[in-house]
Write a protein that binds this DNA or RNA. Sequence first.
DNA 1: GTCCGAGAATGAATCGTTCCAAACTTGTGG
DNA 2: CCACAAGTTTGGAACGATTCATTCTCGGAC
Lengths: 335, 335
Amino acid sequence: MSVSVKDVAARAGVSVGTVSNVMNRPEKVSPAVAERVHEAINALGFVRNDAARQLRAGHSKSIGLIVLDVRNPFFTDLARGAEDEAALAGLSVILGNSDEKADREASYLDLFEQQRMHGVLISPFGDVTARLRRLHDRGIPAVLVDRTSADTSYSSVSVDDVAGGGLAVEHLIDIGRRAIAFVGGPEEIRQVADRLEGARRVVAEHPEVSLEFIRTRALSVIEGREAGNDILAREPAGRPDAIFAANDLIAMGVLQALNMQGALHVPRDIALIGYDDIDFASASVVPLSSIRQQSALIGKTAVQILIEEADDPTRAPRQVVFHPELIVRASTAGE
Amino acid sequence: MSVSVKDVAARAGVSVGTVSNVMNRPEKVSPAVAERVHEAINALGFVRNDAARQLRAGHSKSIGLIVLDVRNPFFTDLARGAEDEAALAGLSVILGNSDEKADREASYLDLFEQQRMHGVLISPFGDVTARLRRLHDRGIPAVLVDRTSADTSYSSVSVDDVAGGGLAVEHLIDIGRRAIAFVGGPEEIRQVADRLEGARRVVAEHPEVSLEFIRTRALSVIEGREAGNDILAREPAGRPDAIFAANDLIAMGVLQALNMQGALHVPRDIALIGYDDIDFASASVVPLSSIRQQSALIGKTAVQILIEEADDPTRAPRQVVFHPELIVRASTAGE
DNA sequence: GTCCGAGAATGAATCGTTCCAAACTTGTGG
DNA sequence: CCACAAGTTTGGAACGATTCATTCTCGGAC
């Protein structure tokens, strides 16, 4: 049925300990023996039983990653960065999609605890502090991603959305716009609140610039289109000359509305900038300027911190904050 | 450090065997004892070590799922269906994203083999027959999803793309269109070829209808827009009166081009139907008709088959093919 | 009062790998 | 020729949950 080290050892004429050494500390074993063992492994098609290895080691060689939404490119890029970094340390990443549901999030945490993961990266939805504490007591470190922890007892890696909001608005001002509208919502979403806050701060430094807040019920294309239609319905004098959308989906909706039957021209009549820099952003009718987050770098950094904490559980938690980047495309081009 | 059944047993004043019974065959144990054991479990914060359980059982309680692209809603919905079905059997699903890369696919298969997964669902990219054979020999069944297996030694669950192509074109004919264009490519992609084939078959039954094939280099928005611009540049008489796009991204690109400055009206001048029914489809400027696949049902069914095969490895492989569904929206509305 | 059997609880064996102290081998210097 | 060190290899204990043959307990039948 199942080929074990014992079978490999028998065929190679060595002890099981030696087979283990060949796989885990090759430098301890003579080349001739190593060769024989490898031959036996291939001939028998031996594949190590991870459960046994884990049982002995006390914890697994996998890192659990729980994200809010696998469909969001931000998280898939983050996951990719995490995987690549984990691979360097011989670890693999198991991806869990909480889909912004507390019960799904909890069941992944249960699973990861049962599996004695090497560590857990989580973009939390519900209140997970109690659970993370349990994991920590069990020797499983956790790092929060895309969210700063309220208490600083866990490490976190996030992006400065306030700075991102500032970047977007500074750019709009740079190209000469003065009447800016922020479209997005609800403000309960931290990212929305922070981006708006960043926009407000920059506007406060420029007395000649005004900022209007157009609230949406969600961050979707349809909501963006409704907001765009509202703007279109106004007197020309009452329209903003630039729009900062809380994310690219909103921006795309706004663009569709403004562009309908060529009513208004982007960027001539109204400049438009989004947030997240999703693939669709560069593929829309008018390629969209946006704010890009270094998603892969976040994942990579989070894994680095996780590995450090796993090696030395007494290490003090760290909060890393990255700064987003402005991507200029046609929707805010020229004057 | 780590709380084991032994600790629980000591606190509850019973043997380890009884603790195991409480967790795995509660009917074998008296209520009074069960109560004491549960109290001890909670008090000590005991969580079963999955590695030990697995080692004993010979295989894990997880199903591995390898998809071509986690960002594709088709696969996330499929994964959701699989998870829900697996949960009913007390299994969990581990998601791996091959991202259409053979090396990533291979490393997930390695991982799943090391972990002695309960079974593997895979939407294959490279040639995985040799590897699946190995898994099978080791007692790990595999089910192919979204692809019929060339040889019938593995079960598979897929969608009939030929039928889907037929559905789309029948609908266009039903609303009175006669000059149909299929936009998509490259034909090497099985889905593209099948959808085109389905379209051809239906057209062959209607002598009054013509089918034109407009090839694209990829299934992206940009390629779709280029195709749309080409059509727009033609003499009005040379334009089709209906377009069947190989997927929704292509359709969105086509729509953007046709709609630019209100040049052509969809569906009055040209009717348009896509494929996949992605979220964006209903959110585009003109809500898009599309062909929907029962993604969740595919995942659910694949898990059912997998569990059956895991229970009885001698079971003959089955090929299940689902039929897609027509979703009518504004882009093909009325006459 | 004894015997029987059903139900409940026990505990030793088991899974496959890793670790490590001990045993073995080889080569070198005295 | 022996002692010794360095380099290799060995074999058994350990990890923690599950299983199952065995033992125990208790109530009822005779």
